[in-house]
Design a protein around this nucleic acid. Structure first.
Lengths: 192, 192
DNA sequence: AAGCGTAAAGACAAATCTGTCTTTTCAACC
DNA sequence: GGTTGAAAAGACAGATTTGTCTTTACGCTT
């Protein structure tokens, strides 16, 4: 599955043949088909593993960088920057998967939707903890910046998409928490 | 080429066989290979046509909706909404193409990069005309929102991604033009 | 009306794809 | 130590892929 993930991510799903995965991993064909009924099932399993690992990594990378919820919202984009500039960045695997399996009722699409919902949920929790007046609204705005940065980094070749998104996020966050819970937030912001 | 564009867009590049394009379009195989040396060349030609048509459509859709540069920046997102809710929306074809041809030096990738640069250029012109202090910076922020909205609309199933992006754009635009060219912009904004 | 060029139609080759089957090998466990 | 279960290795089938070649038909021009 690690090999499948690596090859699917770097070369696409349709372009990656079963044989290539088997050859590179040293696994026999019957072993693969004993664990997965078909290539599509393997793809779904790989995506589910990717979802778990990516969200765990994102959470860790954010918490490693910042303590307060508001700073963690911004740290999201520093984490993205780390991802973008990594040696093997080929965009968001779920965006890529949705591109290849475009039909809206495809199981692959459902897994991608779930992944995005779960990431959004994490951002919403941070937004709520940061004192946003409407956490859901702020989270969805930041989600747009995150996805946008990912796409621009993939196509444009990394560059500074993450930091530009971070700057935009600062503006949006400032506007979203303005006036919300002033008794708690204002003094903390004053000494920042 | 119209058929190829339709099938590539709806089903992906690798998943769409030459035979399916030929059958649906009624074109003979030798005719295709007489005009294009290979499938890859056809893909590149299709993407270039898509680039021209999409940018022409975007420009028209924006100018149809708004007169002033600032309003046109916002109209970008209304245009996107129209696109997202259209009958045959399968995300951005260039994002999809970059997903399938992930290698950074692939010719497909180059065409996608060029397309994004040209769209960004259009947004930058609007941002400059709208009186942004730093048109390039604002354009890149709005670009993030546009790409993000496209991805969220594709994966999440349209929803209200475009309008949420528009709201975020209002905040970013307001911040980017604040204080810039006040003698020209302020009176106009006052009567708006 | 004759001829030239292009497209249609389809056979064909060679490679590659997914998925199945068989045989051999190896390792763990009682 | 013998047995059992799983994995390795690879042949194989059937479908599908891209790309080439040949033959037939049609349309435009002179």
């Amino acid at each position: 599955m690690d090999t499948a993930l690596e090859l699917f991510y770097a070369n696409g799903f349709h372009a990656t043949g079963i044989d290539k995965i088997l050859k590179q991993s040293g696994v026999a064909k019957m072993t693969l088909y004993n664990h997965f009924k078909s290539k599509d099932q393997l793809i779904l399993a790989v995506l589910r593993r990717r979802d778990e690992r990516f969200r765990a990594w994102l959470k860790e990378a954010v918490e490693r960088r910042a303590e307060t919820p508001r700073e963690r919202l911004l740290a999201l984009f520093d984490a993205l920057e780390e991802w973008f500039n990594g040696p093997d960045f080929f965009g968001c695997m779920f965006i890529n998967a949705s591109a290849e399996f475009a039909k809206h009722d495809d199981p692959v699409h459902a897994v991608a939707r779930l992944h995005k919902r779960l990431v959004l949920s994490y951002v919403r929790d941070l937004a709520a903890a940061a004192g946003a007046a409407e956490p859901e609204a702020l989270a969805r705005q930041l989600e747009l910046l995150m996805e946008g940065a990912t796409v621009v980094a993939q196509i444009g070749g990394s560059s500074d998409a993450a930091q530009r998104a971070k700057q935009a996020a600062e503006t949006l966050i400032a506007q979203a928490v303005a006036g919300a819970q002033p008794s708690l937030e204002r003094p903390l912001l004053g000494i920042r």
